[in-house]
Write a protein that binds this DNA or RNA. Sequence first.
DNA 1: GTTCTTGCAAAACTTTTGCAGCAGT
DNA 2: ACTGCTGCAAAAGTTTTGCAAGAAC
Lengths: 142, 142
Amino acid sequence: MRSYDEAVGLLKGRGVRITPQRTAILQYLLSHRTHPTADEIYRAIQPSYPNVSVATVYNNLRAFQEAGLVRELTAGDHASRFDVNMVPHHHAVCDRCGKIVDFYHPQLDGLAEAMEEELGFAVTEQRIEVHGLCRECRQRPS
Amino acid sequence: MRSYDEAVGLLKGRGVRITPQRTAILQYLLSHRTHPTADEIYRAIQPSYPNVSVATVYNNLRAFQEAGLVRELTAGDHASRFDVNMVPHHHAVCDRCGKIVDFYHPQLDGLAEAMEEELGFAVTEQRIEVHGLCRECRQRPS
DNA sequence: GTTCTTGCAAAACTTTTGCAGCAGT
DNA sequence: ACTGCTGCAAAAGTTTTGCAAGAAC
């Protein structure tokens, strides 16, 4: 998912109404590709929409998920994180600074087919997370 | 990690004391390779150890993690799950019955090296989760 | 004996829910 | 106008914490 218009088009196509709150959440997700938590989104849009509630953020993130617009991730801490990038990709989570870098590696293609053959498992989603230290944190003393 | 004795040896080697509660948790993990949640473990050992507290289960799962004996997973629901299998492997989560099947596929080897070269990222852990329907659930009507 | 662990209750935090009023289509 | 969304507060669920008493080494 790249542009706001594209995202709104998708939502409308699935019968999801466009409200100011949803616009705000969507804009935040699209302009901060940092895989924020629900609470981060809430605090970010709070100044401009002083009366959005946390519940609304959760409701809408779920609505977006059901529409196939975002996925829910987990970075190891105990709060879900959300990702609007629907192009297949994976995540490198830095365990020191918490940053999540998207990456793609062709080595991981074909896994779904292999699993279907070997285990009879019908894959609907791959969730590949690699943990470690990013380039910057490696060069910094602990 | 395969046997109880092996696990206890590792814990002792790291200065982790062996208590009845820890024994119970460990035995449960080793005999139920179902990647239970903290609460499942709590309820399972409750009859035999009527006064263990949930806090103790959490404390000990964390102690085990720090000793490198278990890893924390997430199956998409909002409770952490715990895994004693320290042999490199991945997880196929059935989104209908919740079962987690361990699997290993050589296609996933070498990923860490590739990431180090391309992104300068020092990988400490791979967390590969595939979601979908298991063989049994596919054959069952929804 | 020393130090780590337990157990309790309470707190902190994340996520969901019910429902009256409101807004998008 | 219809239907779905919002916002509030409250509930449900998960995880952490403080501390005195007890247990492992």
